[in-house]
Each structure stands twice: as structure tokens, then as C-alpha cells.
Simulated assay, not measured.
Amino acid sequence: MTPDEVGRYAESLPEVKRKGTEARPAWYVRDRLVARLDDARTVVIRVPLEKRESLLESHPGSFGVPPRMESHHKVEAYLDEADPAAVRAAIDLAWEMQRY
């Protein structure tokens, strides 16, 4: 999956707006973070903590949680290795969580 594909998918969801910079775009719904590109290969996605473990277990090559994010509602998706359907599912979880 490419950063452009992440952006197109995120922006296809209702109320999602692109913010951030050209180098580090981010997608928000109602000013609440859904996803942010950290670099050309890594996107940070907000996910409910109760869903995070199942994402990590189901797609260990797609997602990770570095120590700095352990206490946050976030995962990193590694775009070079990630299953595109899994990344879209994580973005969906973030979108649902941030809508309300």
C-alpha cells in the first residue's frame, strides 16, 4: 500500500479531512486524528485499545506498537509489508472511534 492509497481511502470516509503538511499529511474527522503519515513507509493509525491486540495478532507483519505508543490508542502500519485490507480495516476502526 502506498501513502497515496492511504490518503485516498481515508478521504473516502464521511467527514474526513486532510490536514498536516505535504511531507506529513494527516487525516482527521471533526478535528480528531484518524491517521498520520510518519514517513513514506509508516502510517500511525488511532485504534481503540481493546481492538489493538487483535490487529497485532492477526497481522503481525502489518502493524506494530513502538514503546512510545504503548499507552496510546495507536498502531504503526508498515506500508511496505502491510496487507492493504488490514490497513483499511484499521483506518475504519479509527474513523468509527473518532466520529463520536
Rank of each mutant, 00 (worst) to 15 (best):
I45Q: 04
E76V: 05
A94T: 01
Y28F: 14
P48W: 05
Q98L: 03
I45A: 06
R36F: 07
G20V: 12
P66E: 01
A85H: 07
R36Q: 14
Y100A: 12
H73A: 13
I91W: 04
D4T: 10
V44D: 13
A94Q: 03
R68H: 11
M97I: 03
V16Q: 13
D4G: 10
V75H: 02
W95I: 09
S71A: 04
S54D: 05
L49D: 03
A77L: 05
H72T: 00
G61S: 07
L93T: 07
T21R: 10
G20N: 12
Q98S: 07
L33M: 14
L56N: 01
K17Y: 04
T42C: 09
E11G: 09
L33T: 03
M1L: 09
V75R: 01
D92T: 01
V34C: 14
R99P: 02
V75P: 04
A94W: 03
G61H: 04
H72D: 00
R88P: 04
E76L: 11
H73D: 11
V29R: 11
M97C: 05
K17A: 15
H72S: 05
H73I: 03
K19V: 04
G7H: 06
D83E: 08
V6S: 08
R41H: 12
I91N: 09
A89R: 03
L13I: 09
A23L: 15
L33N: 07
H73G: 07
T42P: 07
R8Q: 10
L13A: 13
P84L: 09
V6N: 06
M1N: 02
R32G: 11
S62M: 03
D39S: 14
V16S: 13
L55G: 08
V6Q: 04
M1Y: 01
P48E: 08
E11A: 11
A26W: 02
I45L: 10
Y9W: 08
E11C: 14
P67Y: 00
V29D: 09
Y100D: 12
R52E: 10
P48R: 08
L33R: 05
V65L: 07
L55D: 06
M97T: 01
E22M: 06
R68W: 03
L79R: 03
R32H: 12
A35Q: 09
V16N: 14
D4K: 12
D80K: 12
A82D: 05
